[in-house]
Simulated scan of single mutants.
Amino acid sequence: MSDQPRSAGSYSYGTTTYDPNTNISTTTYPSPPARQTVKFITAATIGVTLLLLSGLILTGTVIGLIIATPLLVLFSPILVPAAIVLFLAASGFLFSGGCGVAAIAALSWLYTYVSGNHPAGTDTFDYAKGLLADKARDVKERAKDYGGYAQGRIQEVTQGPY
């Protein structure tokens, strides 16, 4: 089926007619159905309404900033340190809560893993555990080899030509 050639379809939307007397070709398009027209009018109405609302909100925000700027300048010696303190307190609470959630999630995963179930990430955890065991074994062997080498060098130095 996939080796059969595909037939080229007609991709024209309108109907083109050619008048040989005037040497002009004209394309006529079918009128859109009423449903499409209603969709377009509804979308245009909603878009214009939202655009007007965004303009009103922007205007209100600018007016509010114009009114509030003198108050902010007058009270800035009080507001800036208060904002800093509130920011630090809020970030501390959020960080503490995030660490608590992370600890609960880790303990829950660990409990599920130890109880014999296989939570998500178990295969990666087991693979990493195997890699660490292999590396520990390699380090132990290298330490033994280096210890034997160092012991031999110490004996050579102490039993030198003297």
Rank of each mutant, 00 (worst) to 15 (best):
D3V: 08
P5H: 05
G9Y: 07
G9I: 10
Y11L: 13
Y11Q: 10
Y11T: 11
Y13E: 10
G14L: 07
G14I: 07
T15M: 04
T15H: 11
T15Y: 03
D19L: 09
D19R: 02
P20V: 06
N23K: 15
I24N: 08
T28D: 08
Y29C: 01
Y29D: 01
P33V: 14
A34M: 12
T37G: 04
T37C: 03
T45M: 09
T45E: 10
I46D: 13
L51W: 09
L52Q: 01
L56S: 04
I57R: 03
L58D: 06
L58P: 02
G60L: 12
I66H: 07
I67E: 04
L74Q: 07
S76W: 02
S76A: 08
P77E: 02
I78A: 10
P81Q: 06
I84M: 08
A89N: 02
A89C: 03
A90F: 05
L94R: 06
F95K: 06
F95T: 08
G97P: 00
V101Y: 09
A102P: 00
A102T: 01
I104C: 00
W109D: 05
L110Y: 03
L110Q: 05
T112P: 02
T112G: 01
Y113G: 00
Y113H: 06
S115E: 04
H118W: 08
P119I: 13
P119R: 13
P119H: 13
P119V: 13
D123W: 03
D123G: 08
D126V: 14
A133I: 14
K135R: 11
A136E: 10
A136V: 02
R137Q: 11
V139R: 07
E141N: 13
A143N: 05
A143T: 11
K144W: 12
D145M: 08
D145F: 07
Y146N: 05
G147P: 00
Y149I: 04
Y149D: 06
A150R: 12
Q151V: 12
R153M: 14
T158M: 09
G160Q: 12
